[in-house]
Write a protein that binds this DNA or RNA. Structure first.
Lengths: 336, 336
DNA sequence: AGAAATAGCGCAATCGTTTGCGCAAACCTT
DNA sequence: AAGGTTTGCGCAAACGATTGCGCTATTTCT
């Protein structure tokens, strides 16, 4: 409970705060502090269990050993996993994480970003929700920033994202190979980049094969999946023989719908999904899906961020923005 | 990019930094600042888009408007949801969240807690992993701290937790009511308090009914569930007619095992589980379960924390530690 | 021996706020 | 008119670290 700072240690040991600071921040030899001083000071620091005040340290050095992480909804298992990966990787590099949740609100997003700056975070990793890059680019000019999972089409900011085009193409190709010819894709938020890319990939594969592809839906939600599936399959002769769900939430709604219509995946209709989710293996039948390389994406984002931070620290020219699209993998199960 | 702090504003407006600070931190009328000054200063602050430096503010006031949240694994949907709730509630009160993940390691836990202190967080919400309360109590003496989801049997710290005893009792009673008499419980980490309470509740219900109850297993993992279920049901005449899985991960392993043994929940063996997980409704049959009141628990934890913080702020006597056990609810589906 | 180099350490400013005092002018009292 | 209040604001010391510069002894060089 008694105060212990660099000053009290200075008093106890008889050395100046300067020397104490140098010893305790590991700069002893850089400043040629004697072994005697080092010993005395570290000993006293141990005794009173000294911990540097990180707030004061941040204020003085303008570095906080903290990264701001902004996600649009941590309760979403996808973002939770992403966050877990990022937090772990940052921790391994000695950085802490200030986590904010924008809840898909542009308002909250902008507040969180500004808050990060006021806190002098050393960098920001952001899954953006706004549709325009203006704010992010402005912030990025002052604080190293990389976009993760979502991004803007034309931007000077670096981003790391699943290659959603390739993923959707791959999934569709697989359905086609299995003989399905009339495919219904149920999409998520139409405006979001990952969704647009998935639509592109889907249509492009369908077109190439000369098959028939339709896109419906408007949200990454269970409800949306249910609604669209019921819509499409309640006619006696449904015009589709397969469903491509653009997220695991959409998939769930779809399954629910099919079940209520007495239809069974694989037997009556081919089903394929996007998104990782261990649970998909426990559905009956287990669901074939395109899994996103979350770990890889998180790791690349962190690496990219540190590259920018390093460059700025040495006031080198900014490295060219990286635009990374990581290929997802097809996990084949029994639903189509 | 140009600096903008209280000092530059002071220069532009001709008022002292004191006055500027008072105006911008909303203490204008407390110090009777003239309307003219208020107008001039806020106008200039707007113009240069001033944001207070939260680091400096924290250093000076010893408050950071930040709460440290420590969980043992954010990728676990249970903790992810809990975190989401807590972050949201804290946000509503104007607090930010420093999130750390102990990864079930005592070492990391203790480092994170100390880091929180160095950062002068205003409070800590912690899902502990260590078995002894010593460290937590020491930290709690200096920084308001409440335990969430896990806790220590005898402690002066406040905690909020599901009433696991009641939950397990309720689940078991339901199985018994449905006519099952030889129940196998597959438990998680034996040392953890929630697990112990579940065991107690289970045995107590079984005993009261004069039925037969067995507890096996040792981890909240899919593997553990699989292993124990296979073990118990591979004999031609299995000695159990129902399974109580102590978590949804365990449940999944169990399902997998039953499937591989050609057994079907409900038809061949009654199945009930602990834990929330929307997915459980999508299994076939949907799984009857005891759901934990996550939202309620998070909210109570936050409230308790703020009660302690308030008391300390006014240096009132500490409120008596709250030991809250929140009753879970039985969600009946078709697996038993 | 005198100059130069080196070793070992400290002074004091700085980061951007907040806040206990205190001071001068204007306004009321009686 | 003299004293008391209120109004409106500023000085300067914190908060706890870091760091450019400089100072004194001691050692090394020529």
């Amino acid at each position: 409970m008694e105060k212990n700072n660099i000053f009290t240690i200075s008093e106890k040991t008889g050395y100046s705060v300067t020397t104490v600071s140098r010893v305790l921040s590991g700069k002893a030899q850089k400043y040629r502090i004697s072994q005697a001083a080092i010993d005395r000071i570290t000993q006293e620091a141990d005794r009173c269990n000294y911990r540097p005040n990180l707030v004061a340290q941040s204020l003085r050095t303008q570095k906080s050993q903290t990264i701001g992480l902004l996600v649009p909804g941590i309760e979403n298992p996808f973002f939770a996993t992403l966050a877990a990966v990022v937090i772990e990787l940052l921790g391994a590099r000695g950085y802490h994480t200030l986590l904010a949740d924008s809840g898909e609100s542009e308002q909250e997003e902008s507040e969180a970003l500004r808050m990060f700056q006021s806190r002098s975070v050393d960098g920001i990793i952001c899954v953006p929700v706004s549709s325009s890059p203006a704010l992010h680019e402005e912030i990025g000019r002052q604080t190293p920033l990389v976009l993760l999972d979502r991004y803007f089409r034309e931007t000077t900011l670096s981003y790391v994202c699943t290659d959603n085009y390739a993923g959707a193409y791959m999934a569709t190709e697989y359905l086609l190979k299995k003989g399905y010819r009339r495919i219904l894709a149920i999409q998520g938020v139409p405006a979001s980049m990952p969704n647009q890319e998935r639509v592109r990939g889907f249509l492009s594969a369908v077109d190439k094969a000369g098959a028939s592809g339709t896109v419906v839906g408007d949200a990454f939600s269970v409800d949306n999946g249910f609604r669209e599936a019921v819509n499409a399959f309640s006619a006696p002769q449904p015009p589709y023989d397969a469903i491509f769900a653009f997220s695991s939430t959409i998939l769930l709604g779809t399954i629910q719908a099919l079940r209520s219509l007495q239809l069974r995946p694989a037997r009556d209709v081919g089903v394929i999904s996007f998104d990782n989710n261990g649970f998909l293996d426990f559905l009956d039948p287990a669901v074939t899906r395109v899994e996103q390389p979350l770990r890889e994406a998180g790791s690349q984002a962190v690496e990219t961020l540190f590259a920018i931070m390093d460059a700025r620290r040495q006031s080198l020219p900014e490295p060219a923005p990286r635009h990374l699209l990581i290929p997802p993998t097809l996990v084949v199960r029994d639903s189509c």
